[in-house]
């Protein structure tokens, strides 16, 4: 490249390369970001309750549902093993969920959850696996004015009968 340009202007090919590389880079990054942005829905890990309401998956299809465990909705059913709770989304949508199995330690009311399972015709979501979702907040236990003992007690309270 430098051989072509007249010897008087040594900076010129350098600038040419800079412009070329920057242009190529901008085009590439824009293309990559556009592609990733277009993947928005396909690459989402789970349905929110409102998405499940507006555009429900086929009955019996294996999907994931994610949202918050509604306060006060968690209870154990008559068989002593199955738990039921409501998952709420960003608006007022609610999906009732049932699950029997081992619950991750972080799963509590008022916290995030991702349930893997299927939607049934009656609108309940039957989960065969539960994952707890942590939010972006990090708060020491002391600041919540809770000792470890109290925290354990609280966890027990919100988990009546699930032990």
């Amino acid at each position: 490249m430098s051989a072509v340009s007249p010897s008087g202007s040594r900076l010129k090919p350098k600038h040419q390369r800079l412009v070329l590389v920057v242009l190529a880079l901008v085009a590439l990054i824009a293309a990559g970001l556009l592609a990733a942005y277009a993947l928005r829905n396909q690459a989402s890990y789970f349905y929110l309750p409102e998405q499940m309401r507006d555009d429900p998956p086929a009955i019996g299809q294996a999907v994931r549902l994610g949202g918050m465990v509604e306060d006060g909705s968690l209870r154990t059913l008559g068989d002593g093993v199955t738990i039921a709770f409501n998952v709420t989304g960003l608006d007022n949508s609610v999906v009732p969920v049932r699950f029997s199995g081992i619950v991750p330690d972080l799963f509590v009311e008022g916290s995030g959850v991702v349930a893997e399972g299927t939607l049934r015709a009656d609108g309940t979501f039957v989960a065969d696996n539960l994952l707890a979702k942590h939010d972006e907040n990090y708060v020491p236990r002391e600041l919540q004015e809770m000792t470890e003992h109290q925290a354990a007690e609280m966890a027990e309270e919100t988990m009546v009968g699930i032990r």
């Binding site: 990733a36 942005y37 993947l39 928005r40 690459a43 989402s44 890990y45 789970f46 349905y47 929110l48 994610g66 991702v114 994952l131 979702k133 942590h134 939010d135 972006e136 907040n137 990090y138």
Partner: peptide
Amino acid sequence: VWWNSLHQPPS
């Protein structure tokens, strides 16, 4: 931010 994910959003 773009996708629903199990990983937490930025703190």
